[in-house]
Design a binder for these strands. Sequence first.
DNA 1: ATTAATTTTTAGATTAGTCTAAAAATTTAA
DNA 2: TTAAATTTTTAGACTAATCTAAAAATTAAT
Lengths: 223, 223
Amino acid sequence: MEKALSLTEENYIKAIFQIGTTPESNVSTNALADSLQTKPATVSDMIKKLSYKKLIFYEKYKGVTLSESGLKEALKIIRKHRLWEVFLVNHLNFKWDQVHEIAEQLEHIKSPELVNRLDDFLGNPTIDPHGDPIPDANGQVQLGSSKLLSEMTSHENGIIVGVKNEDPLLLQHLDKINIRLGLYIEVKEVNGFDQSMQVKLADLGTLFLSEKITSQILIAKNL
Amino acid sequence: MEKALSLTEENYIKAIFQIGTTPESNVSTNALADSLQTKPATVSDMIKKLSYKKLIFYEKYKGVTLSESGLKEALKIIRKHRLWEVFLVNHLNFKWDQVHEIAEQLEHIKSPELVNRLDDFLGNPTIDPHGDPIPDANGQVQLGSSKLLSEMTSHENGIIVGVKNEDPLLLQHLDKINIRLGLYIEVKEVNGFDQSMQVKLADLGTLFLSEKITSQILIAKNL
DNA sequence: ATTAATTTTTAGATTAGTCTAAAAATTTAA
DNA sequence: TTAAATTTTTAGACTAATCTAAAAATTAAT
Ligand SMILES: [Mn+2]
Ligand SMILES: [Mn+2]
Ligand SMILES: [Mn+2]
Ligand SMILES: [Mn+2]
């Protein structure tokens, strides 16, 4: 019976998962230090420990990748984080910009029974309030294919299915201009210089969006 | 702005509150060590820290008492613990013997907003699944006056309003013999030697209870 | 292919929380 | 009211997680 991961270890495993584009990509010491708001020296130490515990593969100066068991742990934490976000938004009436911080704490509660009952209570949701997929009890993730709004060109259209970033300032701004998941959006015009866009939102009229914002919005790929 | 208490500090504050009969009673080093499953030497150290932070009053060799701010913190933690227990039992279908451990973790989640919304979601309950009162947002506790079943004599009767202990073995046993909160109970006979009792439960017939058990069951005082 | 810049690791400290063993104070009992 | 038992505190050490400063390795630029 391996001892349970500490809160810190869990945060490292999750960060490695989230920084890596694919589960195979190498994650650098500095990237982890940035993401975890700590120093590279600290990361070096922790990396050695996680490697010793076989949660990651590590070669000096070469960065790290999650092992099978590390990936499993990462998905468990992310599952919890996203389920709790659904609970907070759907049942406690939090806004989508208020839940990330709280979920950062709740994701570390240890009780498999709790997670599964919460999942059932919520109706086994497949996405969280930001459109991110929720891994199931076996760690399976339903990856709905999507593209960035910023990658679309004039006259293309689609349904908004997610936001890449959970920065409250971004989310509050999207609220203010009536952008939310599920809405139909149509690209009217793209400015060739700064990539800013004029878009039409369902029946809510048109608006201008900077590239900073369009690069955070995910649109369903109509297959 | 005082820094938030650590998880460990919170557990000490809560234990001091729970061991003391009244908020004024002195709590000994050994009692804390027992309750927190740690060593007296460790308690001595922590006590100094809490005293420095003015959460407790402490005189060497004389035990500790909660200060005003310490008491406030204790009530906040207990409020959270009990609200989460209500959530687990009423909404996630946990049994009353399964929730204590999980609530021990959840009680440390830091977000006043979360606690208050949870309270509303639950319908502002005043007692938890074990009959313990839930402090309100201002730390006010509604103390329903009760006495121990073991203190009652032949032919006395009343309503079961709580259990003193959350040991899963006790709670599971009470389940098995159909004892639960809200039931009418009548003392038929008390054995003078071992204080064991024959009691009649609502319309569920009679049963024998040892003093070990009767001393854990709380009955409403009919004023 | 050297040199310069950047990244990563090591070395040495620090803090929170814990422990064991021993000393000191208090309480209980003779 | 001494002596014995118990409780509590101190002393010294350990682990996890962190830091700063310096050394080593890698990568980028002349
Ligand atoms: Mn989040
Ligand atoms: Mn999310
Ligand atoms: Mn409890
Ligand atoms: Mn309870």
